[in-house]
Write a protein that binds this DNA or RNA. Structure first.
Lengths: 316, 316
DNA sequence: CCGTTGGATGTTACCGCTCACATCAGGGGA
DNA sequence: TCCCCTGATGTGAGCGGTAACATCCAACGG
């Protein structure tokens, strides 16, 4: 039928015919089948996002930024969470590739080699978000977590005199951001001539309850602790609540700092000193990069550094 | 080719042939095209979820529960946020229907009539989550926000003696949960012989910063305020921080209560008295209902009440 | 020895759309 | 008057699967 032309290139069809077709479409309640279109055009109009955990407010914002941009281009988001497992991620990538997604967005830069292979040979735009890496699969948008860690560590160290500082981080396996933050912390402390003993570096789940538990444990074992650096605000908030409950003044006796600057960081009291990361922009930027590539354009910046910012509040 | 049989009914093909086919598949790196399959089978293997806002921790958990169940059945999730607008939701439903999704999950029960029409005539399983309604489009899983509001209001009123109580809620337009919570609050107060003046019922955005601003405003205008009921913990947390900053003792001078029992509710100090809702279960339940329907089974319970629970902590 | 049976494999139309090309009608220039 | 050109419309072959049916062959029983 001429139907297809009415929908895709209305200017090439006579006004009268167009009107007739349109009225028929309206009364039959016709809905184009995007699956069939996808099959015929070899382009599904769908992009996949694989995140560690949906319930992380930081991730949610990145995804929000991503959908906003993609939706404006009529592209929808297929989403799944890997639960911080590179193996699960691999399975998801395989499944999504089977769905012929037009692009893939991944949080983090830690993937199995099979994941990388599949993604490369699929020949579709891929954006890794969150952590800058020297060797992206395709494109990457984020900032250097290692550098950010150095910045906040230096600040915290200054506030703590010569007192011992601990690090409470999310599990580092398959989580490059937590890993880089930790290693940045360690390196900076070493350079300051204050190397950190292993018992002052702990791993925990990425939520407030776990952060609180970790803090309880740390301060009972080490009453002279002067500072705690957390790999995420969610953890730091838990730490803060735990200290508060024990009547330990912050930053008077223990200073606290962390990463992300999620909403709660500015509201707790004392306010959290933290590293602000432009998470919405990460998502938007990733969306734009994918769209550009889909439009056939060469993407000039294949490695976008969105930077970070140290936000000094009361906690350190 | 016999290829298809190898994949779908391997027992019907001779072992030797199967081996040969499999080796060829492996070395060519064949990936089945789910788009084509979807077209042929008239079933895409994709379910759509439309939520007001992804960055809401409650919503994120519901979605997490949903994906968990669906993924186990090889079904993926197409997600989009409506930004609390029924019109945007309508557009999204139209788009997703075009993608021939096998099912739809919606947060809330407020939809345009066109949305309802499309969904009904699509003849696919639809689950509305969060608020129980008498007249679901198809299926519904949630609890009565109105009843929950009565429960927490009664509790809060008792704690506040005869002092005035205010309600700080999310914008109620296109948000049935906020609306029902507010109306439950009003009704209960009226029945208690303490009808609430309009200036004690305010609308705000659903985040901590807005909650804090609302609280500041309320207490400066009404120094004798005794209690604040919030329509969500995110708002209540902001309220709590604002009061704390002003040195107003909670619950000594102002008691605070709310809904949702998100993580932060148990960690702030004083802990938030709130209504706990089984959000993960809402998502899982919705997923199960959709899967059952997809499997051709009749769903026994088309209206699932997951209940709620008053969690009394220190704030009220 | 042959017809029958049933398991293994091949064939074909179709799902709804896009794309390249064929066709058709009418107007203008020679 | 005829032909060519052009803009509007029609046609047909895929896209990569599925499902129903056709075919083939070997073993088996009468």
């Amino acid at each position: 039928m001429t139907v297809v032309r009415v929908m895709r290139t209305p200017e090439k069809v006579a006004a009268i015919t167009r009107a007739r077709v349109e009225s028929v479409l309206a009364e039959t309640g016709y809905t184009p089948d995007l699956l069939a279109r996808g099959l015929a055009m070899n382009r599904s109009g769908v992009v996949a996002a694989i995140v560690p955990l949906l319930t992380n407010s930081l991730v949610a914002e990145v995804v929000q930024g991503l959908t906003t941009r993609l939706e404006a281009a009529g592209i929808h988001l297929l989403i799944a969470s890997s639960g911080f497992s590179a193996e699960r991620e691999e399975g998801l990538v395989r499944a999504f590739l089977s769905r012929r997604v037009d692009g893939v967005f991944l949080i983090g830069t830690t993937h199995t080699s099979e994941t990388r292979r599949m993604l490369v040979s699929a020949g579709i735009p891929v954006v890794e978000g969150g952590n800058l890496t020297r060797a992206p699969i395709d494109m990457v948008v984020g900032f250097s977590n290692r550098e950010a860690a150095r910045t906040v560590t230096a600040h915290l160290a200054k506030r703590c005199g010569r007192g011992p500082i601990a690090f409470v981080g999310a599990h580092a396996r398959d989580n490059d951001r937590a890993r880089d933050r930790r290693s940045g912390f360690r390196a900076t402390m070493r350079e300051l001539g204050r190397p950190v003993a292993p018992e002052f570096v702990v791993e925990t789940d990425l939520d407030m309850v776990s952060g609180a538990a970790a803090a309880d444990d740390l301060v009972t074992r080490n009453p002279d602790l002067r500072g705690i650096l957390c790999s995420a605000d969610a953890i730091a908030a838990g730490v803060l609540f735990a200290l508060q409950r024990r009547g330990i003044p912050v930053p008077g006796r223990v200073a606290v700092a962390s990463f992300d600057d999620i909403e709660i960081a500015g509201l707790v009291s004392p306010g959290l000193t933290t590293i602000r990361v432009p998470r919405l922009r990460i998502g938007e930027c990733a969306g734009d990069m994918i769209l550009q590539r889909l439009a056939g354009a060469e993407v000039a910046e294949v490695r976008v550094d969105v930077g970070y910012e140290l936000v000094v509040r009361e906690s350190a």
